[in-house]
């Protein structure tokens, strides 16, 4: 009896971990999907938006500024960095082929990483967070970390605000329209430059928000810190269906659920191959749903 109760408790704890991790993936995947849907660009420099936002937190912490300042700064840094990327790199490439854009985003990623290495340091830098994040709440038999609660709550709020913006505001509606038919959106009198800039700004702000939770989890920043989250986000986007915004969110949670379940169930000796198992499951999903989970075949172009 005790064993079963413990197993149930364990499952609930794992589910909460999966939700917190999944919501971070969802933010990143949503940003990727947003830029992809309006521009047809898979932005591999998206991970570097996480990195620069993390470094903004580090620099502000170093300057003695409190966490309450670091949080908005991280989000703003992500948004501004994304706008700069789009203006300096992607706008001159408007109309270039998919491959050109892809390779350019890779180059940009390498450039930013090495910039951080050269200007700040190639080594990890500590970013201690408020003690609050290490504490837990006891809800009946469950022990839930504040970090998990805050992560999940912030991500849910961000997703709700974004959904309202996209559905209710004219600017947001224009972005949804541009994702469906870019030329027809111009015929409505909507400027493509504004739609693209808005997509980048939002994707950057979401990356900045995700960076806060990733830094909180690790307690450090380093120049390559954006790579693994980007990879996860990219897989999430593919699971959900490239270009589908809701699919990206669902894909983020599905991927996190797979990872957390494998973490909890795989025996220690095969743990190092966790990624291989996770990607194997993704391959199986895509075998049955090649267009992604949320894309109906009829919608796929």
């Amino acid at each position: 009896m005790m064993v079963f109760a413990a197993a149930g408790q364990e499952a609930v704890q794992q589910a909460i971990n999966a939700l917190a991790l999944g919501s971070t993936y969802a933010l990143l995947a949503l940003g990727l999907a947003m830029v992809f849907s309006v521009l047809g660009l898979v932005n591999f420099a998206h991970g570097e938006l996480v990195a620069v936002s993390g470094y903004a937190m580090y620099l502000l912490h170093d300057a003695g500024l409190p966490f309450a300042v670091q949080v908005p700064a991280a989000i703003a840094t992500g948004a501004i960095a994304a706008l700069v990327m789009q203006r300096v790199v992607f706008r001159p490439l408007r109309g270039a082929s998919f491959i050109t854009l892809l390779i350019s985003s890779f180059a940009l990623s390498v450039l930013v990483q090495n910039g951080l290495r050269a200007i700040i340091s190639p080594r990890q830098q500590g970013v201690p967070l408020p003690d609050f994040f290490n504490e837990s709440v006891h809800l009946g038999p469950y022990v839930i970390g504040w970090l998990e609660i805050v992560t999940l709550a912030s991500c849910v709020i961000a997703l709700i605000v974004l959904t309202l913006f996209l559905r209710r505001s004219t600017q947001g509606l224009g972005m949804l329209a541009a994702a469906e038919d870019f030329q027809a959106t111009r015929l409505m009198g909507i400027s493509p430059n504004r739609v693209i800039a808005a997509a980048f700004a939002i994707s950057g702000a979401l990356a900045g928000l995700a960076a806060i939770f990733l830094v909180a989890r690790r307690g450090t920043v380093d120049p390559g810190m954006g790579f693994m989250p980007l990879l996860s986000a990219f897989i999430a986007v593919v699971i959900g269906g490239l270009g589908s915004l809701s699919g990206a969110v669902v894909g983020g949670f599905v991927l996190a659920a797979i990872e957390v379940t494998l973490d909890a169930t795989l025996p220690g000796s095969v743990q190092p191959f966790r990624e291989a198992f996770a990607l194997g499951i993704v391959v199986v999903i895509l075998y049955f749903r090649p267009e992604g989970l949320l894309t109906r075949v009829s919608e796929a172009k």
């Binding site: 509606l173 949804l176 329209a177 469906e180 038919d181 030329q183 027809a184 919608e299």
Partner: peptide, 8 residues
């Protein structure tokens, strides 16, 4: 081809 926004 009309070009309405099909999902909206």
């Amino acid at each position: 081809g009309r070009r309405v926004f099909p999902k909206l």
